[in-house]
């Protein structure tokens, strides 16, 4: 496979990879780096790519693993510069966030979910993928995906009704 064919192959899902990475890593720059890294790994696998049923699913799984590794190594080090660290522990900050755009608020709620649920919401509600595909990407079974998705959606609803009943949102 030459580089043109490869670029053509990854075009349908390269933005998806970026979005999943951004969901997990929060920062755009880090997500871009992660997407770049995953694509390079794919390119290096070039010869064995034809063995996989779905390159897209492979890419998504690689993205997930790469991002989780990144998060783990970041948490292990002393420097905690992840954006999600300055979230709404502080009520006044929460107030500020609530004043912001309602869509922004939704994204904050989603980013506060546990990583597993974040990825499932990203893949299902945003990328609109089938449960079977999600299960494959995340290496879970479908029932577990459904349960986690339901839990995530309910958490989002809870947080949204909270803000809605306070008259914001």
């Amino acid at each position: 496979m030459n580089s043109n064919e490869f670029l053509h192959l990854i075009t349908p899902f390269k933005d998806k990879v970026f979005r999943l990475a951004k969901r997990l890593l929060v920062s755009t720059e880090e997500a871009e780096d992660a997407a770049q890294e995953v694509m390079l790994k794919l390119w290096n696998k070039n010869q064995s790519l034809s063995e996989y049923q779905s390159v897209e699913a492979l890419a998504m799984t690689m993205t997930r693993n790469y991002c989780l590794d990144q998060l783990k190594s970041k948490r292990a080090s002393n420097l905690q510069i992840v954006h999600q660290n300055f979230t709404n522990r502080d009520p006044s900050l929460q107030q500020q966030l609530e004043d912001a755009d309602a869509l922004d608020w939704v994204s904050k709620i989603i980013n506060n979910l546990p990583e597993q649920q974040k990825m499932i919401v990203q893949l299902r509600d945003i990328e609109q993928q089938e449960f079977s595909e999600i299960a494959k990407i995340l290496e879970m079974n479908e029932t577990a995906v459904r349960v986690a998705l339901s839990r995530a959606r309910k958490t989002i609803r809870e947080n949204m009704t909270k803000t809605h009943s306070y008259g914001i949102g």
Partner: peptide, 16 residues
């Protein structure tokens, strides 16, 4: 729930 579904649509458009 409007912002929620609105957000999904917007988030799906995001590009690097």
């Amino acid at each position: 729930y409007q912002p929620l579904f609105g957000y999904y649509a917007v988030a799906a458009q995001e590009k690097p």
